[in-house]
Design a protein around this nucleic acid. Structure first.
Lengths: 144, 144
DNA sequence: GTAATTGCAAAGGTTTTGCAAAATA
DNA sequence: TATTTTGCAAAACCTTTGCAATTAC
């Protein structure tokens, strides 16, 4: 699930409509490839000439989440972030400049998830892992 | 940093005052040992006869965070949770009953953190890891 | 034409802020 | 007494909801 057209045809296949708002939000999330908040999505689209109502954006995000196109990420800030739901990964969040970079780790956590079930009888469905620290630029800046 | 008195004397040592609100919030977080939201803290304290203003609770949580007594946890819900900042651990969040249980994993993540610095030059300071799934009770309930 | 989607306005919930009053040391 | 802390009220945000108008199919 990488290309915008693929996503749209998947939705169409399920009987959903292709609207301007829908494809614009998907395109934006595919383009930037970084988690965005709903207010940020409104602002970005607006600056590109497509002024969507907040309610529309929120409803669309709920819709895309229900269809497994998008997933939520909770960072330190107050608003919830959303990103395209492709390839399992984690995040490197810079505490200084707030940039977010994806990182892919091995399968080590699956081992923990088995362990958790054996020890606690808690059945893990998913997990979220965020690393907070200083990105390449900010770390170099503060060290020098 | 386990006992309420220890925390209070640490604060006192740094020149901070011991107030009713401050010690009540610390006691509550130490007692329940599970992450609470600010509104929940207000409600719980209020039901125990200590009605604090919301603003006071929020300001106190900022203060306790600045002093490393408390840390934020972001879960799926809308409000931010807070917990006593003791012993590094992670969370098992039940998607059905919303219960939260602490879990302590090994040092495996430190290995990843080193790797992240070597590969990305991103200097990790902390991380947050939450597992979502079904707790012992809810899993048994749905399986039967 | 029918049903899904949108905009608007209003409301709900969380969190922050200014300022005067109260409490701590 | 000198600061810090608190309460109150108001506001700032983020997010959701109802309803009528619009749009996609």
């Amino acid at each position: 699930m990488e290309d915008g057209r693929q996503i749209l045809s998947k939705l169409k296949g399920k009987g959903h409509r292709i609207t301007k708002a829908r494809s614009a939000i998907i395109d934006l999330l595919l383009q930037d490839r970084k988690p965005l908040t709903a207010p940020a999505i409104c602002a970005l689209l607006s600056s590109r000439g497509l002024a969507l109502n907040r309610a529309t954006v929120y409803r669309e995000l709920i819709f895309l989440r229900a269809n497994d196109i998008v997933r939520q990420v909770k960072f330190a800030g107050k608003a919830t972030h959303y990103e395209i739901n492709s390839g399992h990964h984690h995040h490197l969040v810079c505490m200084k400049c707030n940039s977010v970079k994806d990182v892919v780790l091995g399968k080590h956590l699956e081992h923990h998830e088995r362990q958790i079930y054996e020890k606690e009888k808690f059945k893990v469905v998913s997990h979220s892992l965020e690393f907070y620290g200083l990105c390449r630029n900010c770390y170099r800046g503060s060290a020098t």
